[in-house]
Design a binder for these strands. Structure first.
Length: 775
DNA sequence: GATTAGGCTTCG
């Protein structure tokens, strides 16, 4: 039996060849075959399944003889049947002996402060587990000495009485991140609410920042132990007392339930997991958790919002204000202020600050936040709560405005700064995004950010930008420059069709979510359709992968085939057919491959290496294309779709005609031989233009010319999406009065559209592009 | 050992 539950002490019943090993001697590379490790179960996580269906169970063992050492605990991971068997019988406080384990580097050692290795046990590894159950009769003193907490009872927030000490659960409705109080402690004010819909505001103090709840977001779930309840202003109030302890959990429904705490040992039962999941569900529908978070690319002047960012520089400005230089990988769409400080006062990597200069914003923090800001480490990840953006303009140039970032004094509305740990999911996402930012590209994209204000707001580049917006036009005509402007009211009163040159301001545009402007267009039947979702493609691929590739159609005169088996994925096989030229294979970057049975992830990976990919399936006789709901061709990041209505598909054999000639694998050629009418990616937008004499809606129908961004690439490039967002922010800065909007020079044509019985005049923008110094 | 703050945006 790989799992034995023994009612006795560990000294009995162990096979004699086994030797006990101490944590300090556990290290990678040592033979653990005849070793066993013994410890007390101080924490056990719920039994779950891994992605591949394997049962998984995790516990934390504490080495009893060594409990004073810093790392006296170790994670033990159970796989397969052992996970199931152990998960059902193990209890906190049990003594466990683990024999026949594998050692692996613990990925969480930096975060959980446990041993740098973890033990992996499974039947395959030949592991044996001995569990020595807690004696059922324990004395009071024994209970106290165990690292297992007694069963706690939790009071609903509707049942609180003054003068009591209780245990509570709640969803965070409001919080102030810990700040330095006027006394000796850090203070954090937290308002929680539970299913009884009763709120409780708690004032929590502690000299140790870590001892206060690690709340990062509205909606986080907290568990408070031993909190004092008292009455204040005819309301219940929670306040820290002796023995206060807290756990904090991410409030997202379904997210892993990992407690955030500084306490080394804490109780945590399955029942409590349930409580948290229930509170999460309740909060999801009863608490408005959409906090005012924003990326720098989405900032609006005159706004309070929470910013997640990385600190790259800091400097003392004066006694009551302090400068933080931060970035989040995105570009603020407005020119932002640069706070002048002595070079020598600035702490941070000067080279990096210079490299990131177009993405960094300067934040001034005031008064009570200065002390905390001073203590921040450059490089750390921060969330700055209730940051204020303010529009201002230089005294000598009242028409030139820029954005200032302030973290005002006080703690109203949770104003403050919190350092986020590196393992925080938002930080992980941010880091990944920052890694993807190509600095050279982002600098090219931002030629507008030649707005380096050089400390004074009157630099030449800034003026030219301002002029471009105020007098010249943010768009230019690519033809028809000799024509004169026509007023919009004249156009509105004229019969269609006609063409006009106009000068107007962009009042508003649709869609506001720019990625929604990308559509697929068939030039044959003039139909427009939405770009299919990647998930739909994934479903089609999964469906295809259910049928094994037919070996009879493998290898032919014009392609070589290879088949791979998958690991732990049932019968799924991947077949790749490499198209040959002149009976020879080409270099991967010139090669077209046909893939059957691959997942979306695998196909994405292949498309980074091979020039073209055609997803296929096999019939009894041949390979064939998938349904046209899926792309018929993938080239790098571009997915090519065909029109279902206009395509008249030919056999896959037709491709062999292209393979004969030195093939360049042009998508239009591939589509032609396969009988597919290719769909083109287009931007379709509606611009509401106003020139003071009238307002008209003009459609923009653009493949690439207007934005100088190919519509086919924008959905798969965050950089291009940001570029487009930035352009639209210049063409139509949010929250700007009509007078202050920039001018657009456009060429439009009017045309008649029949809508049932009614005839309507529509307008379309063409031969117009965004001015080069805006792009 | 008491105190801190006790939610409800802005001087800069």
């Amino acid at each position: 039996m790989p799992v034995q539950v023994i009612d006795g002490s560990p000294e009995t019943l162990l096979p004699s060849h086994l030797q006990k090993v101490d944590l300090k001697y556990l290290q990678m590379g040592c033979d653990q075959a005849n070793k066993y490790f013994q410890g007390t179960v101080i924490l056990s996580y719920p039994l779950t399944k891994l992605g591949n269906g394997t049962e998984f169970f995790k516990i934390v063992l504490q080495e009893s003889e060594n409990s004073c050492s810093k790392t006296s605990t170790v994670n033990v991971l159970f796989f397969g049947r052992l996970a199931d068997d152990c998960g059902k019988v193990v209890h906190q406080g049990d003594t466990m002996v683990v024999a026949g384990f594998n050692l692996a580097k613990s990925p969480s050692a930096n975060e959980d402060d446990r041993h740098c290795c973890h033990l992996e046990v499974s039947e395959d590894a030949g592991s044996t587990i001995y569990i020595y159950t807690k004696p059922s009769t324990v004395t009071a003193s024994e209970t106290a000495s165990m690292p297992v907490a007694p069963k706690y009872t939790y009071t609903p927030l509707s049942h609180l009485k003054g003068g009591t000490i209780v245990n509570l659960y709640g969803a965070v409705k409001f919080f102030k991140p810990p700040y330095i109080s006027k006394g000796t402690d850090y203070c954090s004010v937290v308002t929680i609410v539970d299913q009884s819909n009763v709120k409780l505001t708690c004032t929590l103090f502690n000299g140790n920042l870590d001892a206060l709840p690690k709340i990062y977001k509205i909606g986080d779930i907290v568990r408070f132990h031993r909190i004092k309840i008292r009455e204040y202003n005819e309301q219940m109030q929670g306040i820290t007392g002796i023995g206060f302890a807290s756990l904090t959990f991410d409030g997202t429904v379904g997210a892993p339930i990992v407690p955030r705490t500084s306490s080394k040992s804490y109780s945590f039962t399955e029942e409590e997991q349930k409580t948290i999941e229930e509170l999460r569900m309740w909060a999801a529908s009863n608490l408005s958790v959409c906090g005012p978070t924003a990326k720098l690319s989405g900032v609006q002047p005159m706004l309070f919002f929470d910013l997640t960012c990385q600190l790259v520089g800091k400097a003392e400005v004066d006694g009551s204000s302090f400068l933080l230089k931060v970035w989040d990988g995105t570009k603020c769409p407005y020119p932002s202020w640069k706070v002048l400080v002595e070079e020598s006062d600035l702490e941070g990597d000067k080279v990096l600050i210079h490299q990131l200069r177009n993405l960094i914003v300067d934040i001034l923090v005031y008064d009570n936040h200065v002390k905390l800001a001073k203590s921040l480490k450059v490089g750390s990840f921060l969330r700055i709560y209730s940051l204020h953006t303010k529009q201002a303009s230089a005294e000598n140039q009242p028409d030139v405005s820029y954005v200032e970032f302030h973290l005002h004094g006080g703690t109203c509305y949770g104003r403050g700064i919190r350092v986020l740990p590196e393992n925080n999911p938002d930080v992980k996402e941010l880091k990944a995004f920052m890694d993807s930012v190509n600095l050279t590209e982002s600098q090219n994209v931002e030629s507008m950010s030649s707005l380096e204000l050089d400390g004074i707001f009157g630099s030449l580049s800034y003026q030219s930008y301002s002029e471009r917006c105020q007098q010249l036009s943010v768009t230019v005509l690519t033809d028809h420059q000799h024509l004169d402007d026509t007023a919009l009211n004249t156009i509105l009163n004229s019969a269609a069709p006609q063409q006009y040159r106009i000068r107007a301001k962009l009042r508003t545009f649709k869609p506001q979510k720019l990625y929604q402007s990308v559509k697929l267009y068939c030039s044959k039947c003039n139909s427009l359709q939405e770009v299919p979702d990647g998930d739909d493609f994934d479903l089609i691929l999964r469906d295809c992968a259910a049928t094994a590739p037919n070996p009879e159609v493998h290898n032919s005169l014009w392609y070589d085939s290879a088949v791979w088996d998958t690991e732990n994925q049932g019968q799924r096989k991947i077949a790749v057919h490499f198209v040959k030229h002149d009976e020879l294979l080409q270099e991967p970057e010139d090669t077209l491959i046909m893939v059957q049975g691959g997942t979306l992830k695998e196909i994405r990976k292949l498309s980074r290496r091979f020039k073209c990919i055609i997803p296929v399936r096999s019939t009894k006789e041949d390979l064939e294309l998938l349904d046209l709901s899926a792309p018929f061709l993938l080239q790098g990041k571009i997915w090519h779709y065909g029109c279902k209505q206009c395509s008249n598909q030919k056999t896959i054999q037709s491709l062999s005609s292209l393979a004969v000639e030195e093939p360049s694998w042009e998508p239009t050629e591939i589509a032609r031989v396969l009988g597919i009418e290719p769909l083109q990616y287009v931007f379709v937008m509606k611009f509401t233009l106003d020139d003071g004499t009238g307002t008209l809606d003009a459609y923009l129908f653009d493949y690439e010319k207007f934005f100088q961004i190919p519509a086919s690439e924008v959905l798969t490039s965050s950089l291009l999406q940001e570029k487009m967002e930035m352009i639209m922010n210049i063409l139509c800065p949010p929250g700007t009065k009509l007078d202050d909007l920039p001018w657009l020079e456009c060429f439009i044509r009017s045309y008649n559209v029949k809508d049932g019985m009614e005839q309507q005049v529509c307008y379309q923008i063409f031969d117009t592009m965004v001015a080069e110094d805006v792009i």
